[in-house]
Amino acid sequence: MAEKSFSASRIPGFATTAILVFCALYLPIVMLVLYSFNSGDSVAVWEGFSLKWYPLAWSNEQVRDVTLRSLTIALVASVVATTVATMAALGTTRRKKTKGQTLIYLMINQPLMVPEIVTAVALLIFFAAIKVATGYQGLGYLIAAHSAFCIPFAYLPIRARLEGMDKTLEVAAADLYASNWQAFRYVTLPLLLPGIVAGMMLAFVTSLDDVVITLFVKSAGQDTLPTYMLAQIRRSVPPDVNAISALLLLLTVIMLTLFFLLTRKRD
């Protein structure tokens, strides 16, 4: 008689709990998107279908400025974070295991384990000293802060891709007298590219919607789109914020879908 394997779906109440959890997670998002098409000013009373809040939000010069600033910071930070993460992944997977390697993993992934508020306060103190010493008040601090915070988000998919790659191809390249650079450029890098792109997209999304670190590090007049929306919601909930949120949600869904397609295992 064949033994029955354990299945969580057979636990009493499992289906009900799963439905409640999904409703709690996604029903507010569905409501946000729905009310971004509300013709009225109310965020609680449906007054008819309309697309007017989308062009209205984009016609706001301040919204355009903070959106461009957010995209610039996220793009530069994701490139920097992905470059550093790629080097870190190569250094931790393409070498013999040594003592202290666990400590290296811990240091790379530290921003994931430490509360973000702690990282934000530390960056505030560190950059405040630099501001006093140099007088520089530009976006460089936000870019550096986002880059540092996003490194582990880019590192994880890149490292996972490296660990899943067959090393025999690199060994074969070395046997054919390829230099380390040639083996990396023509063998390792093409195979690693999906992981790099996935890591960069994950870092981009993480930087784009960051609030806590941005609030602590930014100078006056350096609002990003999330901090601008937060400031608007503190006073009231303008309907165009729903439209902006819906567009950010769409961008995030697209990026995460591409991330899934790049990192899924292929038969």
Rank of each mutant, 00 (worst) to 15 (best):
L75G: 10
L156H: 02
L123G: 09
M113C: 08
N109V: 08
E116L: 09
V132N: 12
V84I: 15
A160S: 14
F149R: 00
Y155V: 02
A145L: 08
K96S: 14
S78A: 15
V114Q: 06
I104L: 15
A74Y: 09
T82A: 00
Q101N: 15
I108N: 05
G100N: 08
N109H: 01
Q137E: 13
I117H: 04
I73S: 06
I73M: 04
T93R: 00
L68S: 09
I117P: 10
I73Q: 04
T119V: 15
A85D: 04
L112A: 03
F127A: 08
A148W: 13
V80T: 10
P152I: 02
T92W: 03
M113F: 13
V132M: 10
S70T: 15
V84D: 01
V66F: 04
A129P: 02
T83M: 09
M113L: 13
Q62R: 09
D65G: 01
A154Y: 01
L75P: 06
M113V: 13
C150N: 11
L106F: 14
G135V: 08
I104C: 05
M107Q: 06
Q62E: 13
I130D: 12
A160F: 00
A145G: 12
G138L: 03
T86Q: 05
S59A: 15
V76L: 15
V121R: 02
L139C: 05
